[in-house]
Every structure is written in C-alpha cells, then in structure tokens.
Amino acid sequence: MPVSKLLRQELQHTADECIDCGKCMALCRFLAESGSPVSLAMRGLSSDKDADTLAIRSYDCSVCGLCSAVCPVAATPERMFKEFRNHAQANGLFKLQRYSPLLKYERLGRHFPFKGESIPASCKTVFFPGCTLPAMHPEATTMTYKILKRLDPKLGLVFNCCSKPSKMLGLNDKYEEQLSSLVQRLERKGVGRILTACPNCYMTFKEFNTKLEIVSVYQALKSSGFAPVIPAIKEVTVHDPCVTRYETEMHKHVRTLIKSTGVRVIEMKHSRTKTLCCGEGGATQFNNKGYAKNWSRKRIGEARRTGVPIVTYCAGCVNFLGGKYPTIHVLDLLTVKRKNIPKPATFPFNYLNRLILRFSIR
C-alpha cells in the first residue's frame, strides 16, 4: 500500500539522522533482531511492499522510546514505528483479534456500569483515575480522591477510558473520535482542568489537541502539603513508566513524595529518561510474548541488584511486574497503611474492584 505523507516523513527523518551506532540495538531485542533504525527506514523507503512488511513487524516493538532516549543524534525511531502501526491499520494490513481482551477492556471503561461521573455545580477540576488504578488499587484511589476533595470541595470525579489502547495499536480515527467526545463533554460542563493518576492517561490527554489543563496528581499532591502515611518499607527503587520518559518534573514529584515519608530511594541503572519498559509497552505481549518477557526480565534484574522493592506510578506496570517481584504503586505507598506489599489483583477481582469503587465513592 502507498505510504502516507506522515510515515514517509518519519522514514526519511530516521534515514537522514540515524548514524547506525548500535546503542539502541544493544538495549532492545526487537531492534537487535530486526535491524538498525536506519536500515529499517531505508527498507521502508525502498518499496511500498517493504513498508507494509515493516508495518506488520512494528507490533513486536514496545514503542517505549528507549531507542530515541539513548540516541546520540536526533533520530527518533519510535515515532517511525508508531506511524508504521497507523499505516497498518489504515490499510487493513494487520488484524487485531489477539488484542481483543485489551480493546474489550477499553470498551468497557467507556460504557455503563464502569463509566460514570460526578461533576458538581461550579466544578472546574476533575479527578480522572483511569481504568487500571481503580481495578488494581481501589483503596489508594479512594484515599487519593478524598485528599484531593479536601483541598477542592468542588472537585469532580470521572470514571472513563482515555482510549490509549486504540491510539497505541494504530486505530487513530477511533481514538480521536472517542477522546474528542469525552473532552468536549467536560468542556461543556465548564471543566478546565483534569488531574490524572495514570501516566498513560496523562500523556494521552496531553498529546491531544485540547484547551483543558492536564495536571499529574503527583504534582497536585506535592503542592498540597498533605501528610502521607509512614510506610513499613524503608527503602525502594523507582520504576519510571516508559510513557513518562521525558516528564522530568513528574520524576521529581514522585521521588519527593516518596522521600517525604522517610523512605530512601535507591536508583536503578536505567531510570527517568533512560528507564526500561516493564514489558507491557505497546501491548507487545499479545503479539510477541518473548519480547515482552525480555523487557520484564531486564527491569526486574536491575531491581534485584538494588535489593529493595519497586515503587512505580503506573498501575499497569505494577500488574506486569508485581507477580514476579515486590512492586507497589506510589499512591498505595503514600495513602494506605500496610505491613506487606500486596499481590496485584487478578480477574475477576479487578473488575469487581472497579464496579464497587464506581458506585461507592462520592
């Protein structure tokens, strides 16, 4: 299929900028086995047939952005792989049946009984906890909302899905239609600010063309002066979700909040801008479990070398890492008094947690 103007631009940019130094390939199994970014870009430019083949292959990529983060020049390969996915879906090159559990999860989040909102009169700010945080950490979600509500009695609450899965899989039209509908409804109700707890929601809203102010709940909590609980844990290492790779202020806010509890932070070799994917990125596990598990092993391997539990601020990362290594969500650490780190909630309890929270929290 003829490539789009956007894909051709990204292919040309990578072909022009990548110097084939191998730094990204040394860290990424996908690139090590597929080829350097410049070689892939040149293939995509050489023929539409090769571009189609690479578009299908892009579903093995975690689109985590580490390739761009370690690049010594101006190449941004992950943008090329995202456009490959858009090309695949726009031209019907790659079927998404194996992703049906993820797309169903998204669809449920946008419909009753999982969807719901409470927006008081004169409400200007809403708390948007996302899909996975309420499912995995209902107590922390409730406590965080109560803290924010004390700071702003007119705070609203919105249970919905940001449609990140559709965006990530290349279903651009679907994602834009769904998120546009949500944003427009909030704007009509007079909302001007969204507090997000999920980093994927934060980035999805932030990258969307909206006048709404998108603020991380970690920034809000850092500025609030609230008193966190004193955890039983005394030392942790922080896993920065790959979607927040360039959100340096969020990295600082999370660490400041952790340290405010008296907990010491021991950094892993790869963190902040050069963080590793937990394995969930790009939903690669649905198409290539080996690549996803490889990322997970790398991340857990670095955590083990610190000798302390992982704290992260993505419920999806907790879900992906927590079954193999002690991992806690930062909001759970800050707001819920615990003696031990709980195991991630599994089906059907994660769905039940969402429903209970949806109808109990006010």
Rank of each mutant, 00 (worst) to 15 (best):
L212A: 05
R264W: 05
N91H: 15
K206G: 02
V254L: 00
Q184I: 12
T204L: 06
N340R: 12
L257C: 00
C71P: 11
M168T: 15
F286A: 15
I194K: 10
R150D: 06
E247K: 03
M1T: 11
L133E: 01
T306V: 03
H251Y: 07
E267Y: 09
R150Q: 07
G190S: 08
Y351F: 10
E17Q: 14
G225Y: 02
R358M: 08
V73L: 04
K49N: 12
I19K: 10
M268Q: 08
R107N: 09
L40C: 10
G192D: 14
F81G: 07
T210R: 09
G44P: 06
P134I: 04
F205H: 14
G281W: 08
C277Y: 01
S39L: 11
P309N: 07
A88S: 05
R245M: 03
K5C: 06
S296K: 12
T346P: 04
H137V: 04
L333F: 05
A197H: 13
M80F: 12
A75N: 02
H253R: 00
I266R: 15
L45C: 14
H137T: 06
A283L: 11
T346I: 14
L257M: 00
L66H: 14
G109Q: 04
L155Q: 04
T142C: 00
R150H: 05
D60G: 13
N86A: 08
A140R: 03
G322A: 06
C71T: 13
E302T: 09
M268K: 03
E267N: 15
E78D: 13
Q12G: 05
P37K: 02
K337T: 11
F349A: 02
T14P: 03
V318Q: 07
K269N: 11
G316H: 13
P199T: 02
A15L: 08
S166F: 06
V73P: 03
K222V: 06
K234T: 05
Q89F: 04
F205K: 13
L212V: 08
K289Q: 15
L157I: 09
K82T: 09
I356G: 11
I266C: 02
T132I: 11
K167Q: 13
Y246S: 11
Q219W: 01
C201Y: 00
F84T: 13
N294Y: 13
G130A: 01
E176P: 14
R299Y: 04
A140L: 08
Q178F: 11
S360W: 10
I310E: 12
N172R: 14
S224A: 03
K164T: 12
W295N: 10
R188T: 07
F159T: 12
E207C: 07
